[in-house]
Lab assay of single mutants.
Amino acid sequence: SLSVDNKKFWATVESSEHSFEVPIYAETLDEALELAEWQYVPAGFEVTRVRPCVAP
Rank of each mutant, 00 (worst) to 15 (best):
T48Y: 02
Q39S: 07
R49C: 06
A26M: 03
E27K: 15
T28G: 05
E21Y: 06
A11E: 00
G44D: 03
R51L: 06
E27F: 13
A55I: 11
S1D: 11
A11H: 01
T12L: 13
P56A: 10
S1N: 10
T48E: 02
F9Y: 08
L29H: 05
P56G: 12
Q39I: 15
T28M: 03
V47L: 04
A55F: 11
T12D: 01
A11K: 01
V22H: 03
P52A: 10
D30W: 14
T12H: 06
A26R: 02
S16N: 10
R49V: 07
P42T: 08
D5C: 15
R49P: 02
R51W: 09
Y25N: 04
E14W: 12
A11T: 02
T28D: 06
S3A: 10
E37T: 11
F9E: 00
E37S: 10
V50M: 06
F45C: 04
E37G: 05
E37Q: 14
A36V: 05
S1Q: 11
V13E: 00
E34R: 15
I24N: 00
S15G: 07
S16K: 12
Y25K: 03
Y40W: 15
I24F: 04
T12G: 02
I24T: 00
W38T: 13
C53F: 07
D30V: 09
E17V: 09
F20V: 03
L29F: 05
F20M: 07
T28A: 03
Q39P: 03
V47F: 02
C53H: 10
T28H: 05
A55T: 10
E46G: 04
L29C: 15
A43M: 15
Y40T: 05
G44Y: 02
P42F: 08
S1I: 10
V54L: 10
E21A: 05
E14S: 13
Q39Y: 15
E17N: 11
A11V: 14
K8T: 07
C53L: 04
E21H: 07
P42G: 09
P56N: 12
A36K: 01
V13L: 11
A32Q: 00
V47K: 01
E27D: 10
E34T: 12
V41S: 10
E31I: 06
H18L: 13
N6G: 10
A36M: 04
L33S: 05
P42E: 07
N6Q: 13
P23L: 15
S19G: 03
K8I: 14
E14K: 14
S1G: 09
E37Y: 14
C53E: 11
E46L: 12
H18R: 11
S1Y: 08
A32T: 00
P42M: 07
Q39A: 11
V50R: 01
S15C: 10
K8A: 06
A36L: 06
F9G: 00
S19Q: 07
T12A: 04
F20N: 01
V50C: 01
V41H: 11
F45S: 04
Y25I: 06
R49W: 08
E34P: 01
L33T: 08
R49G: 13
N6R: 15
G44H: 01
L2D: 08
Y40R: 09
V50Q: 00
H18G: 14
V54W: 11
S16Q: 10
S15K: 10
E17S: 13
W10D: 00
V41M: 07
E21P: 01
W38C: 07
I24M: 03
V4K: 14
N6E: 06
E17Y: 13
W38L: 14
P42R: 11
S19C: 08
V41C: 05
F9I: 00
V22P: 00
T28S: 12
G44P: 00
H18T: 11
W10M: 08
K8D: 01
Y25S: 03
W10A: 03
T48R: 05
E17M: 11
T12C: 08
R51Y: 09
A36G: 02
A55Q: 09
Q39C: 15
S19T: 10
F20L: 04
A55V: 11
V22I: 07
E37H: 09
T28L: 02
A11R: 01
S15I: 06
E17Q: 08
W38I: 13
F45N: 01
E14C: 07
T28V: 02
A32I: 02
I24D: 00
W10I: 12
T48C: 03
Y40G: 04
H18W: 13
Y40V: 05
V50L: 06
D30N: 09
E17T: 14
F9A: 00
S3C: 15
S3H: 12
P52L: 13
E14L: 09
V47Y: 01
S19K: 11
P23H: 08
H18Y: 14
E31Y: 05
S15H: 06
V4G: 12
E21R: 06
Q39R: 10
A32E: 01
R51F: 06
W10K: 04
N6D: 06
E34F: 14
Y25M: 05
T48F: 02
V4I: 12
L35F: 08
A43H: 11
C53I: 04
V50D: 00
F45V: 02
T28F: 04
D5R: 15
I24K: 01
E21G: 06
Q39L: 15
C53W: 06
A43I: 08
E17K: 10
Y25L: 04
E27L: 13
V47T: 01
T28P: 01
S3E: 07
S16A: 11
Q39H: 09
D30H: 11
N6S: 13
W10L: 07
E21V: 09
A36I: 04
T28I: 02
Y25F: 09
C53G: 06
H18Q: 11
E46Y: 12
C53Y: 07
Y25W: 14
V22D: 02
W38S: 14
S3L: 10
V54R: 10
P56Y: 11
K8M: 15
S1K: 09
E14D: 05
I24A: 01
P56D: 11
E46W: 14
S15F: 06
E46F: 11
F9K: 01
